[in-house]
């Protein structure tokens, strides 16, 4: 498939054929009848990683590489449960984590969630935090 362009936007109108929920339903299945009959769960109203990658293509085609990069990190994060996303965010706050803890977080992103772009962001943070005294001191450190 060729990459999407600005002309495909909005996908909800011009390319609904490309849009699916994380549960595999087409976006056209999100109808009031389906809501009332109880066929839909909250999970059906989430964005899928595939859709975020499509929006990233459109952002790239519109000359917005940083926005596209954000969508690619987001695509990786769709696999991470809500509570863990919040915990990861909190771990990145200043002096919240040791260098080791951030390295473990990056590894977990990469291995458990196949999230290399997010992992790279965390590794970059760890490097800067080390230089700017923003890491937590390791607990039980005797020196």
């Amino acid at each position: 498939m060729t990459a999407l362009t600005r002309d495909d936007y909005p996908l909800s109108i011009n390319r609904p054929d490309l849009l699916h929920t994380p549960t595999g339903k087409p976006i056209t299945a999100l109808t009031m009848d389906a809501v009332v009959s109880g066929e839909l769960s909250a999970e059906d109203l989430r964005i899928s990683s595939e859709t975020l990658l499509l929006q990233a293509e459109i952002a790239d085609a519109s000359g917005r590489p940083q926005l596209a990069g954000n969508f690619r990190r987001a695509a990786e994060m769709t696999a991470i449960p809500d509570a863990e996303v919040l915990a990861m965010y909190n771990a990145l706050r200043p002096r919240a984590s040791t260098g080791e803890a951030l390295a473990e977080l990056a590894d977990r992103l990469e291995t458990t969630y196949s999230a290399p772009v997010c992992a790279a962001l965390v590794r970059e943070a760890a490097e800067v935090y080390g230089r700017r005294d923003l890491l937590a001191r390791p607990t039980g450190d005797d020196d």
């Binding site: 987001a74 994060m77 965010y89 997010c118």
Partner: peptide, 18 residues
């Protein structure tokens, strides 16, 4: 209580939920 990296991560968290 934030850094550019924590806020960038949060930005992606929002996008990841659409």
């Amino acid at each position: 209580d934030d850094t550019p990296w924590s806020k960038a991560f949060l930005a992606s968290a929002y996008a990841s939920r659409g």
